[in-house]
């Protein structure tokens, strides 16, 4: 959008903020749950910790309807192509959250079977470390994600979305 005209620039920034605000409270997540971190993912999603407070209570089990990909648990080389395919199927703008240290860096599984961090395969926006992260940490990560969404544009991987705008 044209930023050099004062009025237009003003309007664009307000609109962006408006869109960001709307988006950050309607996180449709795709939980790609594989392993132990899923236990804490469940705990976070249920009534004790209640992610619904952050507008993220609605998992969509189709990548085409989701805009945040939660990668929860170890990714093995056998599973890696599936993860990549799911990521590719998501519509832009899209964000990726690496949940647990296995997805951040590989964690303590440094062996022939595991991927050393999903960022070697797909771009990641928020890293939530911990093995598994406590629900409080997850909520913190979720708030970081919201900030990032509020700031506008797509996630790391959303190609030229921000530039096109």
């Amino acid at each position: 959008m044209a930023l050099n005209t004062p009025a237009g620039g003003f309007f664009a920034s307000r609109l962006d903020r408006m869109i960001g605000w709307a988006r950050k409270y309607s996180i449709f997540q795709y939980p790609f749950v594989t392993a132990c971190c899923g236990m804490e993912y469940m705990a976070t999603a249920c009534s004790h910790y209640d992610v619904d407070r952050f507008g993220a209570g609605m998992p969509r089990f189709s990548p085409r309807q989701a805009d945040v990909l939660f990668v929860v648990g170890t990714i093995s080389h056998k599973l890696a192509p599936t993860l990549k395919m799911i990521y590719d199927q998501m519509c832009e703008p899209k964000w990726v959250v690496a949940f647990g240290v296995c997805t951040c860096t590989g964690g303590f599984y440094d062996n022939y079977a595991t991927v050393m961090g999903i960022d070697t395969i797909i771009p990641v926006d928020v890293y939530i470390p911990g093995c598994p992260p406590r629900p409080e940490t997850v909520l913190d990560g979720l708030m970081k994600l919201q900030e990032k969404i509020q700031m506008g544009g797509g996630g790391q991987g959303s190609g030229n979305w921000a530039a096109d705008n």
Partner: peptide, 8 residues
Amino acid sequence: NRRQPRVG
């Protein structure tokens, strides 16, 4: 740790 990745 000899990996044989299919992607990446």
